[in-house]
């Protein structure tokens, strides 16, 4: 974990209400895909926890959805804006459990963390396939970026305006994958949990106080005891989840 000042380099709209922000700063505390950062905003008491979409030495990319006043404030930021950010938060995805052909499923605001994960898996010689779920075609983002990694991408939209009509589970194969990695709204996670036939890792969201394990604001029960979504999570193993 580290606190650092980051400078906004790019802040662009990817789809209605969805933005990509590229920031320059010290990313050395980020240990892997599935972690999040916690961003301090002027005039807001608590920080905004946002998943990491991608990172490299000195560069952090987040893709965020405008869901309230804080993210609305972020969407108006211009290049050069300096932000106080805590990085390296949470326990991300374990790449060692992927097998050769893992299935990555992201729904809406749960799509971004799948990107760095896919990139890392590809660089390890794995063949991940990706399912992206959206409500409708115009909400689509990051599809081309995933394709540029050389992974197979299936899109599902709830209204059928693009790709498979229905939920991500309607686009899920019955078998043929070695592990599940997913992030998205809880009903989606539950549906994937019920349909998936392998082991898996599920990333959860919860209202947080601190984001680094101090306040107990985001504790959930698991089969292996109480876990803090911000600390032992946000990624939980399929076998430990209690719905």
């Amino acid at each position: 974990m580290k606190r650092g000042l980051f400078t906004v380099e790019v802040n662009e709209k990817l789809a209605p209400g969805t933005f990509r922000m590229v920031l320059a700063g010290d990313t050395s505390a980020i240990t892997g895909p599935g972690q999040f950062v916690n961003i301090a905003l002027e005039g807001k008491f608590l920080r905004r926890p946002i998943s990491v979409c991608d990172y490299a030495e000195g560069s952090l990319t987040i893709v965020y959805k405008v869901v309230g006043k804080g993210t609305e404030q972020m969407s108006g930021m211009t290049a050069g804006t300096v932000l106080d950010i805590l990085t390296g938060l949470g326990n991300g995805y374990d790449l060692d459990k992927s097998g050769q052909t893992p299935l990555l499923i992201g729904g809406g605001a749960g799509v971004p963390p799948m990107y760095n994960l896919a990139r890392k898996l590809v660089s390890q010689g794995k063949q991940p396939s990706v399912i992206l779920g959206f409500n409708k075609a115009e909400e689509l983002f990051l599809k081309e970026e995933f394709e540029a990694l050389g992974v197979a991408v299936t899109v599902a939209t709830a209204d059928g305006s693009l790709g498979v009509k229905g939920f991500v589970t309607d686009a899920m194969p019955a078998e043929g994958y070695t592990h599940i990695y997913t992030c998205g709204p809880e009903p989606m996670l539950k549906a994937i949990y019920d349909k998936s036939v392998t082991s898996g890792q599920f990333s959860f969201e919860e209202r947080m106080g601190c984001g680094f394990g101090a306040c107990m604001g985001c504790t959930c029960k698991t089969k292996y005891g109480n876990k803090r979504i911000c600390r032992e999570g946000p990624v939980l193993e399929k076998e430990e989840i209690i719905w």
């Binding site: 807001k44 008491f45 608590l46 919860e206 209202r207 947080m208 106080g209 306040c215 107990m216 604001g217 985001c218 504790t219 959930c220 029960k221 109480n226």
Partner: peptide
């Protein structure tokens, strides 16, 4: 264990 989630809400 404490209370169920959500346990945190921001205020002005």
């Amino acid at each position: 264990f404490g209370n169920p989630a959500p346990r945190i809400a921001e205020t002005p």
